[in-house]
Write a protein that binds this DNA or RNA. Structure first.
Lengths: 142, 142
DNA sequence: GATATATGTATCGTGTACGATTTAATTGCG
DNA sequence: CGCAATTAAATCGTACACGATACATATATC
């Protein structure tokens, strides 16, 4: 019987390309001493600060068991703060510190660098992104 | 300054879709008691058995620090064997056991299930796969 | 307003990923 | 031949992912 080898599988294309993309980010993030997931979390906060763990989790598609340690590492580094200043005491609100906000300008060049590394133009990248997202949204979130 | 939020980033589309895909595999792999990377490794061996750790790593784009523990778990379960039967004693050859080969038929239905979950036809899936691989291959492996 | 249920976050255990280093075996070259 | 440089795999440490569970607070229902 013939089994499709990994190089022919769509899932493997996603898997290996996502990893390769993280490798591409690595030298750009190293000077900021950030991992890729940490950069994603900060990007979410740079776009909209002071959100709850749950709201960030919905945007990044991560649950608290991944998010909580991630957040705590950045808190330890003094890039953000955790508070319970909402009406609902179950919720934890994440707010950037001055240092956390300052990092945004240090990272401002990164998106352009990534685009350049792909060697593709914006229109193609946007189209590919939307096709990948369309696939994701067809797959059950459950 | 405006920072692109994660939902607009191509890298995040890859990241979140790759994870979603693993979630989609999970209920299909659970009866076989396999994780997604373990399934990838076995798929590689089902397509071509008796390869070295290095050869498998090149196909799966994983280094020995990831592959060795992965392989050892499957060895413990009796699905494969590690031997040094080549001329070069540095190399470790990975060979499926009868149980490991038998698992192939238990997994034979999975690719069709995944295709069905995407709700897309083969032509679109193949095209999307190749576009994603083209992006990967434009990114420096270094 | 006591209590059952639901929700938000944290904790724990297992399994990847991967940089850096180590160990062992092979190859290259004088 | 002798030994430095290279290569294959393993080991170690850190950081995700995520299922399962725990815990605290909120809400609902009577």
């Amino acid at each position: 019987m013939s089994t499709l080898p990994p190089p022919d599988m769509l899932c493997f294309a996603l898997y290996s390309t996502a990893h390769r993309m993280q490798q591409t980010y690595k030298p750009l993030l190293a000077p900021l001493d950030l991992t890729y997931p940490q950069y994603l979390l900060l990007s979410a906060l740079w776009a909209e600060d002071a959100r709850t763990v749950g709201a960030l989790g919905r945007e990044l598609q991560l649950a608290s068991n991944t998010l909580t340690p991630l957040i705590k590492r950045l808190e330890t580094r003094g890039l953000l703060r955790r508070t319970r200043d909402t009406g609902d005491d179950r919720q934890v609100r994440i707010t950037l510190t001055d240092d956390g906000r300052a990092l945004q300008s240090d990272a401002a060049h990164i998106p352009d660098c990534i685009v350049r590394e792909t060697g593709m133009d914006m229109a193609d990248l946007t189209r590919l992104r939307d096709e990948i997202l369309a696939l994701r949204d067809r797959l059950d979130p459950a």
